[in-house]
Every structure is written in C-alpha cells, then in structure tokens.
Design a protein around this nucleic acid. Structure first.
Length: 931
RNA sequence: GCGUGCCUAGCUCAGUUGGUUAGAGCACCUCGUUUACACCGAGGGGGUCAGGGGUUCGAAUCCCUUGGCACGCACCA
C-alpha cells in the first residue's frame, strides 16, 4: 500500500484515475445492473473551448449521475457535441476574413468552405471532449454523439418528412429576420435587442408630418396613414422663406405646445399657427398627392387605419411593407399589394428605388438621405434624444433587417393527429397542435421545471409563439430534405430517384436538430433497445438562457415524434458571472479557462466551488477564493483520511459496512449517531436537488464534527486499536458521500486505503442505520463540548498558554456522572493536570467562572484575575441573556400564544426559558460576588 | 406597458410547508509548530434580514407598498 503524501496533489492522480474509470467499463450502462437512469449531456457547440458555465453544468449532471450510479442504477450519461450551425459558420467565416479571405462564401465556394468549417469543428470537438474528461464527467464514450453525424441526419430528415406530410412544415413568403452578418434568416428568438439612441426625424410629406428613425426608407410611393377617428387640424403660417404655408397635424400635437416645439424644431416659422380647418382622419382618406422625397417625387394616398397612435409624432406615417413587421401586417390586412417594395437588398445595400443612393449601405444611406432632405427643406424636426431598441443577430451582433422572403416554417397552431402517445393528457389519435403539446406536458407536471417560476416564463413564451422559421441560408447544417424538378417537389429522407432533381439550397436551424437530442441519440427512428430503456430521460439541466431555444424545442419534437416527454426533470441553473457580477465574455476579456483552474486547484475543487452556493435559477459569481477554499477542503478530506488510515488496523480496513461498529465511549456514540444523521440529511437534500445544503451538511460534519472534534478526542482516547472499526466506518462512509461531488480525490483515497482493485464509483451509496441510541447522547456531548470550549475561551482571554496548567473545578449535580466519565477527554484536550467535579464548589476571590445549563466551571487564576475584565465578561453574558429571558417570559405569559401555538412549541419555549433563567441566576450571583 | 428574480455580517451567499437568542465560507482581531493537515488548530468581534404598512400568539420567511439592482416578454411609424 502506497504512503499517502502530506498534501493531495490533484495533477498526480486525475488523469490516471479517469483512465481507470474508463477501463472499468462502468461509464457504460451495459455493464451496470438495475433500474435505468439517463441523462443526455447538453451538447456544447463546437465553436471553440468550454467555459466555466459548461464546467458548472458538467459538475451538476455528473454529481447527479454518480449519485444514481452508486444507488445501484443502470446509469447512462450520454456525451455529445452540437454543430451549432450559424454560430460555427459565423465563427469560421470571421477567422477566414482575418486571414484575408474577405468574402469566404464567394471566394471558396460551398464545398471548400464546408470543408474548412468541418476541420475547425473537428478540432474544437476534440478540445471540448478533452475538457469534459478533465472535469471527471462520467460519460459513456461508447455512445458519443454529434448533432451532425449521419445517424442524426437521418433522424432530422425523418422528422422533417413526417412534419411535412402532416402539413406542419410549409414553405411560404413572410416577413423574416434577416441577419446581414450571417447572411441568413433567423428565428424570432435568435434576436438580441439592443437599446440605441438615434435621431428621430420629422419629415414633411405633403402637408403632413411623419416621423421616422429610418429616413433612408422614405424613398418610395406609399400610403400616408392617419387614424380614422383621430382629429387633425390644418394650420396656416408663414414659413422661413416668408411664404404662406400649411400643415396638417394631429390635434393632440397642436394642443401640446412643448411637444410641438420638438416636432417642428427645424421649421422656424415666422408667424403663429392659425387653425383653418379641423377634420377626422377618415375624412382625409383618399386624397392623393405628389411630393418630393430624397430620391425624387413620389405619390402618396391618404389611408385611414387604426394602427396609428395619435400620441406619437404628428399622428401620421408612411410605410415600408418589406422592411417593417407592422407595415407588413398592415399592407396584408389592407391589401396594399403595390407597397411591397424592396428598398434594401439582402446584402444590406439600397436598391435602385433609392435613386442616387443606390448601392449605399443602410448606415451611409441614412446619413446621406438626411442631408439631401435637409437641403430640400423636407426635415421639419429632429429629436436627438430618441431611444429605441434594435434587433441584433445573436451570433454576429450585426443589425437585423426585416425582409420579405420565401422560407420554411413549422406551423405551431395547426391541428394534426398525434400518432402515438404515452402522455398523460393527450392520447394517440387525438387532434392537437404543437403549441398544445408543449403546453400540456408541462401543465400536467410530466415535465417538472425547477425552480417553479420558470413555468410561468415558459407559458408566456409559448403563448406568444409564432410559426418557427427553420430554414437558414448558411451552408453549415442539415440540408433541407426537399428536392425540386421543374414544378415537382419531393420531400424524403433520401434523395429521389431519377435525374434532374436539385436539393433545396437551405439548411436547417440548429435547434431543429438539437430538439431531437434526447431520442435521436438513442438511435431513433430505429426502435432500439436503448430507446426503450433510456427514454424518457430522467434529468436535464440547463441555463435559463436556452429555455426557449432548446427546452421548448425538445418538448415540441419529442412529443410530436414519439409521444413521450424528453425528460421528467429540468433543473434550471443560473448564469455564472465573474467576481464583479459581469457576464463572462470574450469581448470583456474576463474569460477563465476551466483547464487552468483544474491544473492549479484540481477538478474536485473546481467542481465543488461551482456547485456550492449555487441555487436553482439564480446566477452566481465565480471567485478564485472559492476555489481555494474548495482546494483546502479537498486537502482536509485527504488528510483526515490519511490519519484515519494510519489508525485503523489492517484487518479492519474494509470498504464494506455490514453492521454498526461497537461504540466504546460517548464520543463514539455521538459520532456514529451524527454520521447516520448526515447520511439521512444528504440523501433527503440530494433527492430534493438541494445540492448546496447537502454540501453544507457534509462539510460541517466532515470538518467540524469529525476532524476537529471526533478525531481529536479519538487520538486521546485510544492507545490501542479499539477505534479501528469506527474509524473505518466513518472513512468509508464519508468517502462515498463525497464521491459525487469530489470524484477524483475520493477515488484516490479509496484505492489507496482499500486497495487498487476497489472502485468507489460503483460502491454502494451509504444507507443510514438506526442507532439504538438515546437522544440524550447529543446533549451530553454538547455539555462536554461547551465545558471544553468555555475553558479554552478563558485561556484565550487571559492569554494562558497550554504550558501553564489550569486549576479547574466544575460544579454540577446533574452531570457529575457524565463529566466524570469524560474526565480523560476534558483533561487531555485542555492539557490539564487534574480537575475536580463536585455538587458544590466554594468560590474564592481568585476564581473566574462561566456557566452552562446545569454546570458552572471555576478556574482558579490565583493572582491573575482581572476583576474588571471579569465583570465586563459576565456583564456581557448577562446582556446577552437578559433580554431573551424577558422576551420569553412575555411570550409565555401571553394567553394567546399558549392557547394558539402547538403544545410542542410551547413546551420547547418553556424549557428554553427555564435554562436561560437558571443561567441568568448564576451569572448574577457571580456578578454579585465581585462587588 | 406586462411579468419575474434579487436586496440577510466588510465581501460572496445559504436559510422550501411562518416557531433555534438569524447561519456558512472568505476577510478581520488575538493566540498557537499539541506526531493528519499552516491548503492547519484554538478563541473572538461583526447583522434592528433594503424602508414602511398589514396578517398572525409568532414574520428574514406570507400579503400590500416604496425604493434600488438584474432579467424576461411585449412595444419599438
């Protein structure tokens, strides 16, 4: 058996242990018995390396899985990675641009670009999988999956075809979100909204005034929309050139002089405005006029519609049906076909309708159009403080341009017949919509989201859900399985027979394939054994930021495809932030590589520091100090194990615990009882997913109870070997309880202590045994403990080193027998030569004392007593107790408390009062003795 | 505009059916090399649980309200 070194050095053990775990075969559930328990690893994107957030996620899933494995279950943790369509292509394109390939798609072509991306993805994949191993994740590598491998592609095509045949996937022309940067459409939830301050221009259009932040779009014929019920006034005034002029404004604006000032800030009228006419919007409808724009003269026809907000601007607008969601809806609703004018092309440049600004970028056209309009006197006002939110591409961070385009969608509101179902509230053959499926399984509780409050967020999102745009114009991704030949359209898992077919150019939204993750990874569409055994999965954890992207899509896909829920429990963890509470991000340069942390402090320390203090749904901060603390704890575990090992005789060293060990002393009884309590508590807390609390209990027991008290006592109580069995039970149990949280160090110790052929990973999870004990043990131990602590306190306050003996007398009647029996312990821990215990002690002037329930301890300091200090100390104690006694007496004399509170509570309070009163009385006596 | 979360010791956070004189880790102060561990041990100081109101015998915990911070959804001519 190898010596245990003085300090645990993770780097000396971790790789070797991980390899041993793999070699053992126990990562693979085929080698395990019992009830199946499955977790699908959320596949990290192959866009680079893992960050601490991934490390948190891995720690959570691995602790869950290791706990279950030790419970004797057939555990599968299936690892994998995600091709992350847009993200990866954007990443690689960015790198290529840096290398000098300015237009990767044009310059390289489809095949070459794809091959470059593939190379990058494979590199990244290798890095990521290496990181996952470093974290100690107990995943079954024989079942490694990739969202873009051949079998997953088959699953994607299969489900596409089924949805297509069910009429749930359709192709249609819609207003979509176009990412100029990614050169692709994005779904609604792939947008990020950024608050921006941009000038809001008031532009003259005939006699009307319209407002816009997008002056570059004001270059085409348009209806001029007013509110039918809105009141408009025509005002006459003398303009800057001294000419008589007229404007039509909403009455609201005209009545609000301050606002009027803003809207017409550039007009500089030379007279008052005189109202010459007042009309309703609907009365204005129909009139047509020609007016200048920055790109020449255009025709406008007044249209009355309720979309107009009379409080905004001058109560009138023109529209860009191809470049605004509201306008697009309005144009469709009112049949304004002639307004579908493409002003901006898909590369983000102005079209010929912009006249001389054709070919300009949006940004440049905006500036130039304003200049032209200013020169033409078309701008009547400008609000520079206008703040609005603009959509950005979540991957490339470039502006999203609404565009009209032909795309593929999943219809979430269409009724279809669910072919198979194991769901609680929806039976096979029933008509449902995808939206209803998503709602029902969460409402029924089949999918349980933790914490609860995310249910609300989830439902809110689904209520607002519109058809899901699934086609992308990027090349990196699952190709849409649709082929065309002339007018013919073919949708199938495989390419159609015959010549002349061309496949749709587009690829699928990455979430389309990751939505299938829980079952496509198990071999679907084949009816595999794995699918039967491991689906639905039992547990899933994810950050709230992908609740909609992923969780909702998994529910949609899984319920649709196989009529099952994807998982029964989702644990939503918060986001990991840096020490200042900022998001970790590359641009902020505050990223921390998990591998560096592992190298420095060990994987166990990293895992512990991430999981502790982390509660469901709440963000947490990452501190180096936390990792250091965790490292210290790991080392503590190592060292107490080292000590125990040295104090257990060889024949007692066994990992199996078949029976309760013989307890010889109070401390023995106490620690055994505590150990059982700890097992019970940890079990309960882990079962409730309260990892932080479980860890707190474990830490407290390990460090405070075992290391600081029990082992210190055990050293003094045992000359021989009678502690062997107890120490072995504690050691074996502690290591197993810690293993899910600190897999490496516990394995290292386990194999060192119990032999290299042993493996803690599949050791049975500890079960609490009943302690035929009395509840008094804990109280008795507390008495001993407080006598010792009290005496240490006096040593501290009087600065008496342990080399100087104390003359101690303990006055007690109630606990005389107890303290007599613990005399050795007290004496040795405090390094006393001797001390006396008696029912009655005569206090002298040279003594100081402290009290506890039923016990008063006197220390004769001879000449060393500092009376002032002593009085102060006693007074402080009295100050602590007295208000409490008063409060308790008041409480207990309160009739309604005594009659309303449960009897147990009342009794408990009475008992506490009695103790406090007794202590107070003694303290007061002592105080008097000083006077 | 609608909604959610958070505000507890100097710092970071626990505190899950309302009932311990409100906890932990770090930091701080004092002491200490006692054969597991200085990645240590012993002792100590430190909080009217954001403010106000209410329900209750009893509130950090439930309700209302004010303020601050963070976030989600919607809007975004």
């Amino acid at each position: 058996m190898k010596e245990m070194e003085k300090a645990y050095e993770p780097s000396k053990f971790e790789d070797e242990i991980y390899q041993k775990w793999i070699d053992s075969g126990f990562f693979n559930p085929d080698n395990l018995e019992g009830e199946p328990f499955s977790v699908m690893m959320p596949p990290p994107n192959v866009t680079g390396i893992l960050h601490l957030g991934h490390a948190l996620e891995n720690s959570l899933m691995d602790l869950m899985v290791r706990y279950q494995r030790m419970q004797g279950k057939k555990v599968l943790l299936l690892p994998g990675t995600d091709h992350a369509a847009v993200a990866t292509q954007a990443k690689v394109e960015g790198l290529l641009v840096k290398e000098g390939i300015e237009h990767p798609r044009e310059e390289l072509g489809r095949e070459e670009l794809l091959s470059r991306i593939r190379t990058f993805a494979e590199d990244s994949k290798a890095t990521i999988l290496g990181q996952i191993r470093k974290l100690g994740t107990s995943a079954d590598w024989s079942r490694l999956r990739y969202t873009f491998d051949d079998d997953r592609n088959r699953a994607v095509n299969e489900i596409f075809k089924r949805m297509y045949d069910d009429g749930l996937i359709y192709r249609g022309t819609r207003l979509i979100n176009w990412s100029i940067g990614a050169q692709s459409v994005l779904s609604d939830d792939e947008l990020e909204w950024d608050e921006k301050q941009e000038p809001f221009y008031y532009i003259r259009c005939g006699n009307f005034v319209i407002g816009t932040v997008r002056p570059e779009t004001k270059c085409a014929n348009s209806p001029l929309v007013v509110h039918p019920e809105g009141v408009y006034v025509k005002v006459r005034f003398t303009n800057a050139d001294g000419e008589t002029d007229e404007l039509i404004l909403s009455k609201n604006l005209f009545d609000d002089k301050e606002q009027m000032e803003n809207v017409l800030s550039a007009l500089q009228p030379q007279s008052e405005f005189v109202v010459i006419e007042e009309k309703m919007g609907k009365e204005l409808e129909g009139q047509t006029f020609e007016y200048e724009t920055y790109a020449g003269s255009r025709t406008f026809t007044v249209l009355a519609d309720e979309v107009i907000d009379m409080e905004k601007g001058a109560g009138a607008m023109t529209i860009s049906s191809n470049h605004s969601a509201d306008d697009y809806d309005l144009a469709n609703r009112r049949g304004l076909d002639e307004t579908f004018i493409q002003k901006i092309d898909f590369s983000g440049k102005m079209t010929s309708i912009a006249g001389e600004l054709e070919g300009e970028t949006i940004e440049s056209a905006r500036k130039k159009s304003v200049q032209i309009m200013k020169d033409k006197g078309l701008i009547v006002g400008e609000d520079v403080s206008y703040v609005h939110r603009v959509p950005l591409c979540y991957r490339t961070k470039t502006v999203i341009e609404p565009m009209v385009s032909n795309q593929w969608f999943v219809d979430v509101n269409k009724k279809f017949v669910l072919k198979q179902s194991k769901l609680k509230d929806i039976k096979a053959g029933q008509e449902v919509t995808l939206k209803e499926l998503m709602q029902t399984v969460v409402r029924s509780g089949e999918v349980n989201i933790l914490p609860d409050r995310y249910n609300k967020t989830y439902f809110e999102w689904i209520d607002n859900l519109r058809d899901w745009c699934i086609s992308r114009q990027i090349w990196w991704g699952h190709r849409i399985p649709v082929w065309y030949r002339g007018e013919e359209v073919y949708c199938g898992v495989e390419a159609p027979q015959g010549d002349g077919w061309t496949q749709d150019e587009d690829t699928l939204d990455t979430w389309f394939s990751s939505g299938l993750w829980t079952f496509s990874t198990l071999g679907w569409p084949d009816q595999t054994e794995d699918l039967k055994l491991f689906h639905p999965t039992n547990w899933m954890q994810m950050g709230w930021e992908i609740l909609f992207f992923w969780m909702a899509r998994m529910i949609l896909m899984t319920t649709y495809a196989i009529g099952e829920i994807p998982f029964s429990n989702v644990y939503i963890h918060g986001m990991l932030r840096d020490k200042d509470g900022k998001k970790f991000s590359k641009s902020a340069g505050n990223g921390i590589d998990p591998l560096e942390m592992i190298e420095q402090y060990g994987a166990d320390a990293l895992r512990y520091s991430l999981v502790t203090g982390c509660t469901p749904g709440n963000d947490s901060r990452f501190y180096i100090e936390k990792v250091e603390d965790a490292r210290n704890l790991v080392n503590k575990l190592w060292n107490l194990s080292r000590f125990m090992k040295g104090n257990i005789r060889e024949s007692a060293l066994t990992p199996e615990i078949s029976q309760m060990p013989q307890a010889y002393t109070l401390a023995d009884q106490w620690v055994i009882q505590k150990l059982q309590n700890t097992i019970t508590q940890v079990n309960t807390l882990v079962a409730e997913y309260q990892f932080t609390l479980a860890l707190e209990k474990l830490r407290e027991f390990t460090w405070n109870d075992v290391a600081d008290w029990y082992l210190e006592i055990a050293k003094r109580e045992s000359e021989g070997e009678e502690k062997s069995e107890i120490l072995n039970v504690i050691l074996s149990t502690l290591l197993r309880l810690w293993h899910p949280f600190m897999p490496f160090v516990t394995e290292a110790i386990w194999q060192n202590v119990y032999g290299e052929e042993q493996i803690i990973m599949v050791a049975p999870w500890p079960k609490a045994m009943s302690t035929q004990g009395n509840e008094k043990i804990e109280n008795q131990f507390e008495i001993v403990r407080s006598v010792i602590t009290g005496l240490r306190n006096i040593r501290g306050e009087y600065n008496i080193p342990y080399t100087v003996d104390l003359s101690v007398s303990i006055e007690t009647e109630e606990f005389q027998v107890l303290l007599d029996s613990q005399a050795q312990v007290i004496q040795k821990l405090l390094k006393l030569q001797s001390f006396t215990i008696a029912p009655q002690i005569d206090k002298t002037d040279t003594m100081v004392s402290f009290v506890d329930t039923g016990v008063t301890v006197y220390v004769d300091l001879a000449g060393a007593v500092d009376f002032e200090k002593e009085k102060e100390r006693i007074q402080k104690e009295i100050d602590g107790i007295e208000p409490y006694v008063i409060a308790q007496e008041k409480k207990l004399s309160n009739e309604s408390f005594v009659s309303n509170a449960p009897e147990a509570v009342v009794n408990q309070e009475k008992e506490k009062l009695a103790k406090a009163k007794e202590n107070l009385k003694k303290l007061k006596e002592q105080q008097e003795s000083f006077v």
